[in-house]
């Protein structure tokens, strides 16, 4: 198996650099920040890190079922494709800002995209 994007961009240290950047973009994005209004920021940052680790093909134990359960309460509040697209946009912008090459960003986007149906409970 070829090396994951996660390993190629520098593993956990690279993800740590990405977490603050990504989460700051998400919180500043009026299209989606309403979903994060009442969350504990430290816990949320840990979740963002787990998400980024997964999107980059790093070690994780998340299943489609976890994704479904974890987002069901947000789907009830109206989470839909447009919000998912906004998160994808923030992910791409974060990786670009960190100087990740376009082909690797494409790979990360494809992994994140593969969770769409589970996240949106389709």
């Amino acid at each position: 198996m070829s090396q994951s994007v996660y390993d190629r961009i520098g593993g956990e240290a690279a993800v740590n650099a990405a977490v603050d950047l990504f989460y700051r973009k998400v919180l500043a994005d009026d299209r989606i920040n309403g979903f994060f209004a009442d969350t504990d920021m430290d816990k949320q940052a840990a979740k963002q890190k787990a998400f980024l680790t997964m999107a980059l093909g790093g070690p994780n134990n998340y299943t489609g079922e976890d994704m479904r359960k974890g987002h069901a309460h947000l789907v009830e509040r109206g989470l839909n494709d447009s919000h998912f697209d906004a998160v994808m946009e923030n992910l791409g912008a974060t990786l670009k800002e960190l100087g990740v090459p376009d082909d690797l960003i494409g790979e990360a986007a494809a992994i994140a995209e593969s969770t769409r149906n589970d996240v949106l409970g389709k």
Binding site: E12, V15, A46, K47, A50, T53, G58, P59, N60, N61
Partner: peptide, 9 residues
């Protein structure tokens, strides 16, 4: 425990 990969704390 949860993620077992050092992410979730």
């Amino acid at each position: 425990y949860s993620c077992e990969s050092g992410a979730c704390q």
